[in-house]
Design a protein around this nucleic acid. Sequence first.
DNA 1: CTTCCTATTGACAACGCTGAAGTACGTGCT
DNA 2: AGCACGTACTTCAGCGTTGTCAATAGGAAG
Lengths: 335, 335
Amino acid sequence: MKRPTLEDVAAVARVSPKTVSNVLRDRPYASEATRERVLQAVAAVGYRVNRAGRALAGGGSGRIAVVVPNLHQPYYAETAERLILALAAEGLTTTLRIASDRDAEREAALGDTTADADGVIICPHHLDAELLEGKTPDRPVVQFGGLPTGLLDTVVMGQREGFKAVTRHLLDTGRRRLALVWNATPSGRPDGDRFDGFLEALDEFGLEPDPTLMVAGSDWDRRASGYEAMTGLLAAGAEFDAVMGVNDAVAVGALRALRAHGVRIPEDAALTGFDDTDEAEFTVPPLTTVSPEHEAMVDAAVRMLIDRLGGGADTPQEYRARAHLIPRASSGVAR
Amino acid sequence: MKRPTLEDVAAVARVSPKTVSNVLRDRPYASEATRERVLQAVAAVGYRVNRAGRALAGGGSGRIAVVVPNLHQPYYAETAERLILALAAEGLTTTLRIASDRDAEREAALGDTTADADGVIICPHHLDAELLEGKTPDRPVVQFGGLPTGLLDTVVMGQREGFKAVTRHLLDTGRRRLALVWNATPSGRPDGDRFDGFLEALDEFGLEPDPTLMVAGSDWDRRASGYEAMTGLLAAGAEFDAVMGVNDAVAVGALRALRAHGVRIPEDAALTGFDDTDEAEFTVPPLTTVSPEHEAMVDAAVRMLIDRLGGGADTPQEYRARAHLIPRASSGVAR
DNA sequence: CTTCCTATTGACAACGCTGAAGTACGTGCT
DNA sequence: AGCACGTACTTCAGCGTTGTCAATAGGAAG
C-alpha cells in the first residue's frame, strides 16, 4: 500500500530506476521505445515523484515561495491567487508566506519558510528593498510590484501611466480640486511613480498640486487607513471636487467617510482608486479605478523566475507593465 | 558557503549528528549540558534543518496543505490568512492550493500538491464530501466549514445559531417580509443549518417562510451572484422589508442591485450578510453580519490537525463553533 | 571480421536526516 | 561482588532521487 517509487516503476518497465528518472525529466538519450515503456509503467503503478527525494538529490523541490504582506487586503489576495495558478500551470507548487511587519519575522522569511523553495516571488509592502540589504539571496527572487532596486528581477506596475490616466480623466471631466488620499512616505510627502504620473497630468492642464489636499493614512493600504485619512481631511474643511485613493482599499475607506459626511459621489466629488480589485465593481457607486494588467504582470513574474531557475540571465531584469483606466460611476460627470 | 548540516553542528558540539537531531526535536535522554552545547553550536554555525532530508527520513515535512476554492472571495482569503498564521505559530509551513472546480484538478489536489504535506486543511466550496468518496486519505485531513460528513475531523461553523440570531434581530426590529438571497442546492430549495436557523427564528414569531422571497444565485458565494439573484427578485416585483444574504459576498452584490433600483438601505429594506469579512464594515451603509468566531475555528482546526499528526484520536472529531450578531447600520430601524 | 564510435542504459555514491538497535556508564539492589 | 536497569549517547542503514561515470550494444568504418 506504500507509494510506488522509481524502483517499482523500473521493475515493471524492466529498466533501471535511473532510466525512469531520465525519462521523467525529459533527458536526452532515451530511445522512443524505452520512453514509452516507462511512461506506461508509470501510469500502471500510479507513480508520482517524491519531491523530498528529488529535492535532496539536488533536482529542485518544485516549490516556489510567494511572499505577501497579508491576504485580507483584496489586492494581495487576488495577486496571490493569480500567482499560485500561474505557477501551478508550470507544475510548480506554492508555499505562501505572510510577511507580517516585524523585522524579525522578515529575517525568518527568506530563511525558514523559504528555505526549501527553489525560488521566491515577493510582493513588497513598504519599500522593503533594505530587506535584502547585505543578504544576497541564495536562490532566484522576483520582486512583484514596488519600487525597482536594480538588485532583483522586478515586475514594475504601470503606476505612472495609470495615475496619469486617472488624473487626466478627472481633469477632462471638469474636476479641478483633486484631493489625494495617499500613503505616508519617509519624506512626508507623496513620491514615486504614482505621484509623478499625477504631476504630469496636472502639468498638461497647467495646474499645480495643492499640498493642503494631500493626506496620508497611517498604514498605506487598508480601508481603515483611507477612512481615517479622509475623515481628517473632511474635518479640516478642505474643499475638493475629486478624491483620488492611492489604491482601491484606501478609496473604499474614503468612500465610507465621504458618505458619512453627506458628500455625494459623484455629484459632489468624484472618487477613484487603483488596482482594479473585484471589490471596486461592487461599491455604491461602482468605483472608477485603474487596471494594472494583472495577467501580464503575473506572466512576466513567472517567466522571469523560470528563466532564472534555468540559470538564465545574470543581470537583474525588469518588466514594466502598462495600466489602463476603468471608468465607472464614481467619477461620473458632476452636476 | 554551503548550508550547514547536522554533521557540521555535531562537529562543533563534539557529539554525534544523531544527538543534535534528538536535541532539536526535543527528544528525551539528553543531558542539560549536552543540550546547551548543541544549541550553542546550532546558533554558532547558523544551522537550519533541511526539510527535504527530514521528510525523506520519515520525520515529516512540517508542511500543511491548505485547500481553498479561491482567494478572491474575501472570506476564503481571510480564512487562509488566519490558518497560515496559526500554522506558522506552530512551526508549520503552508502550501496553499486553489481547488478550482474541475474534478480532474481535484483529483490532482489531494495527490500532487498535497503529496508532500504532512496534513491537509480543506475549506469545501460545494458540499464536496464526495471528493473523498472512496479515497481514504493517507494523511490527516481536517475539514474547515461546510457540512460535516462524519468521515473527517470537522470544524463546523455556527450557522444555525448565527442565522437564527440575524433572523431574530430583523424580526425584533419590526421586519416581517424577509427575502433570502441564498445558494442553489441540489433540492432546489434552501437547506442546511443556515436555513434551519432561519426557520427556527421565524417559528418563534409564529411566522412561515415565503417561498416567493427566496432566490438563489448561480454560484453560491460571489458578489456577482448576489447581484444577479437580487436583480431577478426586484424584477419580479417582490415585496420585502429585509434581505438576508447567505454570506457577505452575496449581500454586497445584493446591495448594489438594491441601490441601483433605488431601494434605500435600511429605510426601505434592511440588509444582512454572514461571515464578518473586513469588507462588511466598509460598505455604505455598513453591513450587519454574523461573526463566526474565526479565531476559535482556526484554533480548533489546527489543534485537531496536530492531534492527528501526533497519532491522536481515531474517530473523527467535530468542533462546533458559535457565532454572534454584529449589528450595523444596514439593518437600522425602518422609518 | 575486427575496431571504434555513439547512442543508450546501468551501477554507485551521495543528498541530510531519522528510526532502530546498539554501547557505555553509573545506580541501586541482593 | 554481581546483576538488572535507566540514562546518555553512538552507530548504522536506509528514505527516494539524481549526477557521475562506467558499461553495453549496435552499427559504421576499415
